[in-house]
Amino acid sequence: MIKTLLFGSNGFLGSHLQSKLDGEIIGVNIRHQNWQENIPGDANVFINCIGKAHDHKGTATEKDFYFANYELVKVIFEEFLKSNAQIFIHISSIAAVEENERKELLTEDSVGNPQSHYGKSKKAAEEYLLKQSLPSWKKLFILRPTMIHGEGDKGNLTLLYKIISKGIPYPLGAFDNSRTFVSVDNLVFLINKIFENRDSINSGIYNVADDEPVSTSNLIRIMAQVNQKNPLIVSVPKVVVTFLAKIGDTFKLPFNSKRLSKMTTTLLVSNQKIKTALKLKELPLSAEEGLIKTISSFKTQL
């Protein structure tokens, strides 16, 4: 049976991994003194999903991001090298490549263009890991998920749902965009498949995304459908929306330029490399099925 050490088990993704991954899952809290001494000698896998992403209050510093997303990665990976574990899975982010808008389909070979401390610190961690020498019997998998959603999500989808569920018209109809998401269930499925195929899959970077992109207008339709309402989409002029987002930047409001970008820009990501490596034709949940499951969970958690 696979025994996995999970770093970051209390976060959104970590909690899903803790309950859904195959085998025995042991959460490791690196805040505990001498945590390294409690690493079991028979652990097979290290998974690192510690990270700092959201900073809606705008109070986090560059040092905060690099500590969580880079410095801690080095500490955990060094323990992996000392251990008997065979697999290290690092949860990175597509933000290490692109955070805003990219018209062409992103692959693992796309040139990175991170802009924020978050994206740059994620990229730095990837570069560090790829430079390390691995014994022939150990493997490293860097997973780059797109925007992850699922039960317990408190990100941009939740904010958007709050607007739609109250019957407030969606004001961003003037923006025509499409983005690739990933449901947490599809992400867990892929990690379990890595476990199953650990002898045949090669180390490296793998994008993790749903099979299909979703336009924002379709996302609004799904939210309205879950609430059994007709979608109300209003095309407020882009210049007005952009101005309101800048006001949000100034006064630290939930609606700001960063969130506007996430909700209105196009970012398409290919998951073909990991599906080919795992001999998969498609993921268990379509993009729409995953979103319906997530949005349905909002009805009970909000």
Rank of each mutant, 00 (worst) to 15 (best):
I87Y: 01
K246W: 09
I194Y: 03
F255E: 12
I222N: 11
I76V: 13
P254R: 10
Y161P: 00
S235I: 00
Y161M: 04
F175H: 07
K120N: 11
G204A: 07
E282Y: 03
E62F: 00
I233H: 11
S9V: 01
I164L: 10
N38R: 14
L267V: 02
K275M: 05
I247L: 15
V28Y: 01
K258F: 11
K74M: 11
I91Q: 02
K131P: 00
A124Y: 04
H16Y: 05
I163W: 13
H54D: 14
S203I: 02
K20G: 00
I26S: 05
F243W: 14
V111R: 11
Q132I: 04
K74F: 04
Q301H: 05
Q36G: 10
K57E: 15
L302V: 09
E71T: 07
N29P: 00
N227R: 09
I222M: 11
I76W: 02
S178A: 15
D210Y: 01
I76H: 04
G8Y: 08
F12A: 02
K20T: 03
E79K: 13
E127M: 09
S215Q: 11
H117C: 08
N84G: 11
I201P: 07
P231Y: 06
G112F: 14
F181M: 12
K120D: 10
K103E: 15
V75E: 15
T61S: 15
K120F: 02
S110P: 11
S121F: 13
L106K: 06
I247G: 01
N10Y: 02
